Simulated scan of single mutants.
Amino acid sequence: MPSIAPWKQAFSAQIQTLACPTFSFATASQAGGIVASHVRTLVFRGFYGELPANKYNPVSGNIGFQSDLITFTTDKRMEKFRDLGGVEGVASSSLPTVTNNVEACFWVPSDGNPMIGKQWRIRGKCFVLPRDLEVADKAVGETKEWLVERLSKEGGGDGSDFDFAKEYKAHFGNLSPVLRGSFRNPLPGAPKELGNGGLTPKSPIGDDQLDEEVALSHFRITVIEPTRVEYLDLEGRTKTIWVQVGSDAEKNEKLENFGKVEGDWREVEVWP
Rank of each mutant, 00 (worst) to 15 (best):
G117L: 09
V102T: 03
K153P: 06
C126Q: 02
S93Q: 06
D132Q: 07
D163Y: 02
D132N: 12
D137E: 11
L95F: 10
R131K: 14
T97N: 15
G112N: 14
P96H: 11
P130H: 05
E134K: 12
P109Q: 10
V108R: 07
D161Y: 02
S94V: 15
N100R: 10
A104Q: 05
S94Y: 13
K125L: 15
M115R: 12
F106I: 06
A139E: 08
G156R: 10
P96S: 13
R123C: 11
K166F: 02
W107L: 11
I122L: 04
P96C: 10
Q119V: 12
E154D: 14
L151K: 00
G157Q: 06
D111R: 06
W146R: 10
E154V: 13
V98L: 06
G156V: 09
R123T: 11
L95P: 00
D132I: 01
E103Q: 15
D163I: 09
N101E: 14
S93H: 05
G112D: 13
E145G: 14
V135D: 04
V148M: 07
C105N: 11
N100W: 00
G155T: 09
F127C: 06
G155N: 13
T97C: 14
F162D: 00
V102M: 12
A165V: 10
G112K: 09
R131W: 02
P130W: 00
V98D: 05
Q119K: 15
